[in-house]
């Protein structure tokens, strides 16, 4: 198991904020957590990363990473694991990059610190990593020269630089346009396929989670109200709140058009894509699925 949470409760003082979260995430697996703000999804992620806000603790239950109970880790051991075993990307990528340093140098710095690479080797590897997130030619660019989607891809390159086994994406596409969101989600799926990276995808949007995940947890007010394989949760939701999320999507998403014309659409999109396929780099990156 890459990451395993067993009945994790999170408290601050005598108030409990998360009332028991459990999931097993195998290598190459994808777990989704859906909930609105205040549902406890971000606290759960922070517990998995060992970065709970001051005053908050895992009051009962266990978080284990690669088979090790993280409660037994010293601060130093945690620092060593973070980045090299588990890593994360969040909303608002711009705030995680230093505006006065080039994007490439910030990826390279992670490699120098975490993998103890020499400067030259770190630079070469950083260029490779940026290529792998489809950002050729940005090594010497500054954060302000990149769009939101490009910044998030640069952050993903930084997050996977030290070869983690688990990546947490907490509302990583929330602030982005839908075509850019799909680009980030597709990139995460490609990384999962090519490297066996396990993913925790956190979103307020059930559909984002449904795109990518094997298992989904629906959280509300700190409790998991529903959990199971994506198809069960979407097609046979048991909890009223899950049903509400699905109804909302069906009345205001594109689903109502697609459910009628879905086959036609898929045909149209695929047919058009094949006919118009341009012989360009990256054109085939999804074909390995």
């Amino acid at each position: 198991m890459s990451l395993q949470l067993t009945d994790v409760h999170i408290s601050a003082g005598d108030r409990e904020f998360v009332h028991g979260v459990s999931f097993d995430l195998p290598a190459g697996g994808v777990v989704g957590i859906v909930g609105e703000s205040g549902s406890g999804k971000t606290l759960t992620c922070r517990a998995a990363l060992g970065i709970l806000p001051p005053g908050f603790t895992v009051s009962s239950g266990t978080v284990s990473l690669g088979g090790r109970d993280t409660a037994t880790l010293s601060t130093r051991e945690w620092t060593a694991l973070r980045g090299s075993t588990i890593s994360a990307v969040f909303q608002d990528p711009a705030s995680y990059l230093n505006p006065s340093l080039t994007v490439g140098s910030q990826v390279a710095e992670v490699l120098q610190v975490k993998l103890r690479l020499r400067r030259r080797a770190a630079r070469d590897r950083a260029v490779e990593l940026l290529d792998s997130v489809r950002l050729p030619d940005v090594y010497r660019r500054y954060p302000h020269e990149l769009s939101g989607g490009m910044l998030q891809r640069a952050l993903i390159a930084t997050a996977i630089a030290a070869g983690p086994r688990v990546l947490i994406a907490d509302e990583a596409t929330t602030a982005l346009d839908v075509t850019v969101q799909s680009e980030i989600l597709d990139l995460l799926a490609d990384l999962r396929d090519s490297t066996g990276l396990a993913l925790v995808v956190v979103s307020h949007d059930l559909a984002v989670v449904a795109q990518l995940c094997d298992e989904v947890l629906v959280m509300r007010d700190g409790a998991v109200v529903e959990q199971g394989p994506v198809s069960d949760v979407l097609y046979a939701p048991r909890h009223e709140y899950t049903r509400l999320l699905i109804d909302e999507h069906e009345s205001y998403g594109l689903d109502r058009f697609l459910s009628l014309d879905g086959a036609a659409l898929e045909g149209a999109v695929l047919e058009g894509a094949v006919r118009e396929r341009a012989p360009l780099e990256g054109a085939d990156h999804g074909a390995a699925r």
Partner: peptide, 25 residues
């Protein structure tokens, strides 16, 4: 690409490979 990127519950939207070629185009 826009329609094929919209997150849907019943995954009738385009798949990764189709989106990748649209982006390249």
């Amino acid at each position: 690409l826009l329609v094929g990127s919209a997150p849907t519950l019943r995954s009738a939207a385009a798949d990764r490979a189709a989106r990748a070629s649209l982006r390249a185009l």
